[in-house]
Design a protein around this nucleic acid. Structure first.
Lengths: 210, 210
DNA sequence: ATACTTCTGTATCGATCGGTACGGATAATA
DNA sequence: TATTATCCGTACCGATCGATACAGAAGTAT
């Protein structure tokens, strides 16, 4: 992100590790082991740095986790924002669900989804991390709802459709796919689930159903 | 379960607490905080006993968690086995999904589902608890698959239906509902998701669709 | 009453947790 | 080259983790 030689000054000894690569490694550890399941020793080992360097560069464990979440959203989970831009509501739903199914079963990534794993692997609902993750869930659903409401206005979805219900349905299937991926379901199995879920999708646009 | 005065002998000093009530309390703590999020101090406080009594009666933390899971399956999550006995495949699916939606948002229970919360709140996939929970997931899906295969044979589902895909779909929605319940979704919202999911259900029996 | 068995409570174990103090090393600035 | 600011590595902090040793209390059996 930040250019290495952009800042002219950079007084003092420059850091010897790549902060981006280190954050990437931290993200993958959290992704695999969850928030509570990840210790600082796990992190420093995977990031290739020692503890004081971690604290100087990223703050404490919670702060590092939030940065890892942001990187996850902008990187591996970018399928979400790309899905919103699909031209049809059905395309949005399909891209959302296929996205998590493929990401969560990629052989070069940890299984499952960092958001889901992180949400359920911090203390109880009073934990600030839990609250932030719950807020993010609500925000994503709201974004989907607005997108589907637009589709109703465009005739892309039948007039009687409930955008909120459809948004929550897509989110629910996505969370379920993430849980299944985290517990060893195969990509082929999950893609069949996506197809089944899409059978529930209300026809609209050129071919209205009911 | 075990009667207090049934055994005639019971040599030595009898225990002063109700083991069933204590296990019930432990189950609820795990349900609310997850496996890693629950400490022994949390447990002893909720169970009203001290640490050596806990170890004598239930073994270590992992053993207690397994007993809590068994109690959860036989108690709050008994809707699963009841759902299997529904006369129609659609009834099975509906009862499964409504079951988790209502259980996970009950005001007198912790939010979410102990199985899902437990699975994602133990270490990584190498953890024995994680392996057992994954196996339980696979077992539940297999039971659903057999039930739906029977429904195909009975004409309750269309001949071309894929019982495995339907079973995984129902399980996926259930997991997703549990995640949503754990992050604060309301019962009304989740029941609408169930209705949306049931729109995907293939018509059969009296009213074949395609 | 005595012996024996089991439970309860305190007090503590070694290990690990997240987080830091501090000194030596390294580079840019002057 | 001297100064200054930052980073790296060791070694350690208090707190908490899961798990237990031990002694006294409370029962049954003889």
């Amino acid at each position: 992100m930040k250019a290495k030689k952009a800042s002219p000054a950079a007084l003092g000894r420059p850091r010897e590790f790549d902060a981006d690569a280190a954050l990437d490694a931290a993200m993958r550890v959290f992704w695999q082991k969850g928030y509570l399941g990840t210790s600082l020793s796990d992190l420093t080992e995977a990031m290739g740095i020692n503890r004081p360097s971690l604290y100087a560069a990223f703050g404490n464990k919670e702060s590092l986790f939030r940065k890892a979440l942001a990187r996850y959203s902008a990187g591996p989970a970018a399928y979400v924002s790309r899905a919103i831009d699909e031209p049809t509501a059905r395309g949005v739903a399909e891209r959302m669900m296929r996205g998590v199914a493929e990401l969560g079963t990629s052989s070069c990534n940890p299984a499952g989804c960092l958001w889901v794993h992180g949400t359920l692997s911090c203390g109880d609902t009073s934990d600030p991390v839990h609250k932030e993750l719950s807020a993010h869930r609500a925000s994503t659903i709201a974004t989907l709802r607005r997108r589907f409401a637009r589709a109703v206005g465009e005739g892309d979805l039948p007039a009687g459709s409930d955008p909120g219900a459809l948004a929550r349905f897509v989110a629910t299937v996505n969370f379920g796919l993430a849980v299944q991926a985290a517990t060893g379901a195969s990509r082929a199995e999950l893609l069949r689930v996506v197809d089944t879920a899409l059978d529930a999708w209300p026809a609209g646009g050129k071919a209205a159903r009911s």
